[in-house]
Simulated assay, not measured.
Amino acid sequence: MDDTYAYRPAGLAARDRTNTLFAQTMGYVAVTTGLFALGAYLGRNLPGGVAFIAYLAAFATLIAMQFSVRRSRQTTVGLLAAFGLLIGVATAPTLVYYAGTDPQALWQAGTATALFVAAFGAAGYATRRDLTALARICFCALVALLVLGIVLIFVSIPYGSLIYSVLGLVIFAGFIMFDFQRLRRSTDVDAAPLLAASIFLDILNVFLFFLRIFRGGNR
């Protein structure tokens, strides 16, 4: 048991752990975002094949984090850092494409993402209603969205890209609310790296969906 909380009233100790979890998680999100930016910069001139390999490696680090979180906090944090760097390399071709064809869309998407995450994150953190069922619904909807994405590759649907992006934003609004509620309800400080990875993925996906929307709007 952590001696820091050993002689404190149970309610205060739980609140302290929750506050610590929030601070550490958001700190990890910030560092992961910085490493993502570094990875995107390093991968800006790399071929698409390297980006794909980086994507697979980033996915592997997420799986590895699930196994390391209860064994070694340092290893989990290291895997989170590697994930941020690798996913930055994997996303670099997309960012380079938008920077070259429509740089305004990057700024618009970044601003919209910040406001979107702040609004739904605050709503999820403040609500007292259990959002576990919402997370399950969002997961099923995400699977359906992936199927729709495959269909759109082969079938031309009017406004298909816009519909896909709006649906994606709705789904990840639910995920953001759920993840921020977990920040308020959990007292497991060791879970901070996993929560940070989840929130970072929420932010990244929202950003990419907004990119598709603003790219279409700027044409």
Rank of each mutant, 00 (worst) to 15 (best):
A64F: 10
I137Y: 14
G124R: 02
A57N: 09
T187V: 15
V96C: 00
C140E: 02
Y125P: 08
S198Q: 12
F214V: 11
L195D: 05
V166T: 06
L95D: 06
L195R: 04
R212H: 14
Q66A: 07
L169N: 06
F22P: 02
A6Y: 07
Q181C: 01
R128E: 10
V189C: 01
V89L: 15
L194W: 00
Q104G: 11
A119Q: 00
T76S: 15
Q24M: 15
A23V: 11
G100C: 11
S156P: 00
D188G: 12
M65N: 04
F200A: 11
G149D: 07
T101G: 02
G84R: 00
G27A: 07
F207H: 13
I176N: 13
I157W: 04
A135D: 04
S186L: 11
G27P: 11
M1E: 06
G39V: 00
F22C: 12
Q66Y: 03
M1P: 10
F67T: 02
A196F: 08
F52I: 15
G100A: 09
G49I: 12
G48F: 06
T127Q: 10
R70N: 07
R136S: 14
V166Q: 06
A90I: 08
I176T: 15
A6P: 02
A173K: 04
F207G: 13
A192F: 13
V50I: 15
A109E: 02
F36E: 11
V117Y: 05
L62M: 13
G11R: 12
V50N: 03
R44F: 05
R212Y: 00
I171M: 05
A196K: 02
F154S: 03
L86K: 05
Q108V: 00
A23R: 14
F52Q: 09
G217D: 02
R184L: 00
R128W: 01
L162M: 15
F210G: 00
Y97P: 01
L21S: 07
M65I: 03
R71Q: 04
S165G: 07
F59S: 10
T127N: 08
R44A: 07
I176Q: 09
L42G: 13
Q104E: 13
R44Q: 10
N218V: 07
V189I: 15
N19W: 03
G149A: 09
Y164N: 02
D190I: 09
R215P: 01
L162N: 00
Y125I: 07
G149F: 00
L42Q: 14
A133Q: 07
A90E: 03
Y5P: 04
A109M: 04
Y125N: 06
T61I: 12
Y125L: 14
G11H: 08
L38Q: 02
L208M: 14
R185W: 01
M1V: 11
L204F: 09
A197T: 03
L183R: 06
S72F: 05
T111C: 08
Y164R: 07
L131Y: 03
L183E: 08
G174Q: 00
L115G: 15
R184S: 14
I63Y: 05
L142F: 15
A54F: 03
G34K: 09
A23Q: 06
G48S: 08
L35R: 06
M177R: 08
Q74F: 09
R136D: 07
Y164S: 04
A141K: 10
V147R: 09
L146S: 10
F120H: 07
G88L: 04
